[in-house]
Every structure is written in C-alpha cells, then in structure tokens.
C-alpha cells in the first residue's frame, strides 16, 4: 500500500502532500509523542489528535509516512508548512483514531 492508496481509500482531506509513491508499512495510533518515538516503525501511518508542531518533528525523526489528524481537527499553518519542508503527508479525517485504525486495518494494513 502506498501513501497514494491510503489517501484514495480513506477519502480524507489532504492538508499537505509529501511523496505519494512511498510505501506504507504499518499503522500506529497514539497521542503520546515519547511513545511514538520509542515504538512506531518507520513507514507507519500515524493516527492522532495531536496538532502540536512537535508532531512533525517526531514524525520526521521516526520516518512516519502519513500523519492522520483525527476528529476533524486541523493544524495551524506553521505546522503544515513545517510538514511540507519535511516532505510529510498530513491528512485530516472526521473519524476518530479508532475508526481510522479500523478502516485501514480492514483495508489490509496490518
């Protein structure tokens, strides 16, 4: 599954698009940054409700392929700009992290 496939199948809004041909390897749902740093695998889709600028720093550090901001939340423009510089994809979803995880899991991202 690629970044492009995830965007297509979730129907979420794209806040900023990075490398869409990149392979997505697994999913991680978490709102604690230290936990993501310690445990999320590179290439993961990360579902969270955090919109803090530190999210981008952590995502870049771990090598996250997509950040999905859940529950209809949106990031401030400086956060989006920062993500663009890191070639990160950010999606906005109306769904909760539970539902986003569920949908991706059912799509085969295990």
């Amino acid at each position: 599954m690629t970044v492009h496939d995830v965007i297509e199948s979730l129907g979420a809004d794209v806040a900023v698009e990075g490398d869409t041909t990149r392979l997505v390897t697994s999913g991680y749902a978490c709102d604690l940054l230290s936990e993501v740093i310690a445990k999320a695998a590179p290439g993961s889709v990360w579902a969270t409700i955090q919109t803090h600028v530190n999210v981008i720093a952590v995502a870049a550090m771990v090598g996250i392929s997509i950040v999905i901001v859940c529950e209809g939340r949106t990031c401030e423009s400086d956060v989006v700009e920062h993500a663009a510089k890191e070639h990160l994809t950010i999606l906005y979803s109306r769904d909760s992290a539970y539902t986003v995880s569920g949908k991706l899991y059912v799509l085969g991202l295990r």
Binding site: D31, L32, L33, S34, Q50, T51, H52, N54, R73
Partner: peptide, 14 residues
C-alpha cells in the same frame, strides 16, 4: 480548542 500552555511532560500524562 487546541490551544494549550501545557508542557510536554503534562502531555505525557494525558
């Protein structure tokens, strides 16, 4: 909504 002065330490506490 979303505006906070909380520190990272507080965010780790949920």
């Amino acid at each position: 909504e979303g505006w906070s002065t909380a520190t990272d330490a507080i965010r780790e506490l949920g």
